[in-house]
């Protein structure tokens, strides 16, 4: 490994109590993110990736397990000094900024809350942050009303950087933006990481974006991490069958066919695992299941030091066909 882990997620489980049942949103997840690295967490809706992000940023507390940022444990209650070190960039830039407050006030708020700098120092910092995200400091006096989605997301990123955080949790930061704007935001995020030495935890369902931004990927399915490894390995040689499905689901337009091609024999419907299910959660959708899949829940095992997967009937290493379709 390249350095000390900045973020360590250790056997974290999150249960939600529903009216009649219990939902296991995050099921015994362990992950590490190295300093200056970018880990992408991918998975479909309901895979638990957003809940995991909520646990890390502290809007919810884990049912069991522990999350560490360096030497500090991240519970749901955390002191300001800890909160300062993590920032969140949300999915929807239209809801992220208060329509009745100026952009300066929005970016200033974290500094005021944390007592960073006096009035003029904050003023300079807001101008500097706006320049960092390639917006004009002249924008500071305006309210978000007339801003585009991309501009708003830049302001949200500037606000996230206001406390000089170490870890940026990016919850689908480009999914509600136009494709052309997405590319600019991704370029900005890459640039900021380089300049400021940031560590990113990146929640997304867009594998094309993963390729651009992330160095490592964790694939989640129904609350569990089913595969984790470097981006190149996951894209070129995925082992878990669910990763295969995700990669195959990237819509591609081939030359031979007219339309969008999706040929993979998976069930698309998400079947909730039956009560007290023992086997693999992906079993109901997996055409490659073997007998053991019904009875054994596969553990996330290292195939080498960097690449782990939880599949009893994995793809062979040379299976590369599904990894080529992404937007690169």
């Amino acid at each position: 490994m390249t350095g000390p882990a900045l973020l360590r997620v250790c056997n974290v489980t999150k249960r939600f109590k529903l009216a009649h049942a219990e939902l296991l949103a995050v099921d015994d997840v362990s992950l590490e993110v190295q300093k200056f690295d970018t880990l992408a967490i991918v998975g479909e809706s309901g895979s638990g990736k957003s809940t995991l992000a909520n646990l890390i940023v502290g809007s919810e507390g884990a049912s069991s397990g522990a999350i560490w940022l360096g030497d500090t444990e991240l519970g749901a209650r955390r002191d300001k000094a800890t909160r300062r070190r993590i920032a969140l960039v949300q999915q929807n830039p239209y809801s992220a900024l208060n329509p009745r407050k100026s952009i300066r006030a929005a970016i200033e708020l974290p500094m005021i809350v944390h007592g960073l700098g006096d009035r003029s120092a904050r003023r300079r910092k807001v101008d500097e942050l706006l320049r960092r995200v390639h917006l004009s400091p002249a924008l500071a006096a305006r309210r978000p009303l007339g801003l585009s989605g991309g501009e708003r997301q830049r302001v949200a990123i500037a606000r996230a950087l206001a406390t000089d955080p170490e870890l940026l949790v990016l919850d689908e930061p480009t999914s509600s933006l136009d494709v052309s704007v997405q590319a600019h935001i991704l370029a900005l995020l890459l640039e900021l990481q380089q300049e400021l030495g940031l560590t990113y935890l990146f929640i997304t369902h867009d594998l094309g974006v993963v390729r651009v931004l992330a160095r490592r990927v964790a694939v989640m399915y129904q609350g569990r991490v089913v595969e984790e490894g470097p981006v190149e390995a996951i894209f070129s040689a995925p082992r878990h069958r669910y990763t295969n499905l995700l990669l195959a689901s990237i819509p591609t337009v081939s030359d031979e066919d007219d339309g969008v091609k999706l040929d993979w024999p998976f069930e698309q419907a998400i079947a909730p695992p039956p009560e007290g299910a023992q086997g693999c959660a992906f079993r109901p959708r997996c055409p490659f299941a073997i007998a053991a899949c019904d009875t054994t829940r596969p553990a996330l095992l290292g195939e080498d030091a960097l690449h782990r997967h939880a599949c009893l009937a994995p793809s062979r290493r040379d299976t590369t066909a599904q990894g080529t379709g992404g937007i690169s």
């Binding site: 809007s59 949300q90 992220a96 900024l97 708020l109 809350v113 406390t163």
Partner: peptide
């Protein structure tokens, strides 16, 4: 439930603020 309220809470702003 708006993003800016969530954001203010996560950064540690007091309920009164």
């Amino acid at each position: 439930l708006e993003g800016y309220v969530v954001s203010a809470r996560l950064i540690g702003a007091s309920p009164v603020r």
